[in-house]
Write a protein that binds this DNA or RNA. Sequence first.
DNA 1: ATTATATTTGACAGCAAATGACAAGCCATA
DNA 2: TATGGCTTGTCATTTGCTGTCAAATATAAT
Lengths: 102, 102
Amino acid sequence: MTSHSMSDKTFGETIRALRESKGLLLRQVAAALEIDTALISKIERGERTAQREQVSKLAAMLEIEEERLMVIWLSDKIMNIVEEEPAAYKALKKTEKRITKN
Amino acid sequence: MTSHSMSDKTFGETIRALRESKGLLLRQVAAALEIDTALISKIERGERTAQREQVSKLAAMLEIEEERLMVIWLSDKIMNIVEEEPAAYKALKKTEKRITKN
DNA sequence: ATTATATTTGACAGCAAATGACAAGCCATA
DNA sequence: TATGGCTTGTCATTTGCTGTCAAATATAAT
């Protein structure tokens, strides 16, 4: 049986899956975000990263709860910092503690 | 009694405390890192961020285990991304999971 | 107070990275 | 071979870092 900890997709993979499940074209999503089709294509493939504002628009367009999408987007950004870092896990744990101390 | 979860200092605060405890001058640390005194001053006060390479040099100079300093430095960087974000905690948790899946 | 030394501040030049647009290319499928 | 959707490379522009410098401010000692 499969281990049920799904949704380990990157931000790009996530929005691509959502878009396709809705039968939307890149062109349509691009128009909604007011950017070029090429750019949304790159974002979906992880070649570029989305702006915070674009994440909100995407959430609306793709009908996913904004926070859920934001978590994935933030996680990608954190990943970019800590991956390759041996101290990654400890840094995350420490940050968690710092954050819950408010 | 005090809750013993100390060391919640930022990277800057940490290296300043270490430097002062060793009686070193900004000028001396700056020389070791081959940067201007003004810059290390700014790093200590959190106005600028250190480069990865500088963290290593600082660890050596201040005689702190490199990983310990690196964790604080990374945590500061993560903080910069997630603070102000309501989804911060969830993003950290998710990233943790992604990282341990290697 | 005057001097000497340490630190801070703000402005700046130089460089690197991110952003988004465009045009040309590829890949299906009709 | 045309058409529509997506991808790729290149480019101009903007944005953001990095470190330096000079001037300002503090700190201390004489």
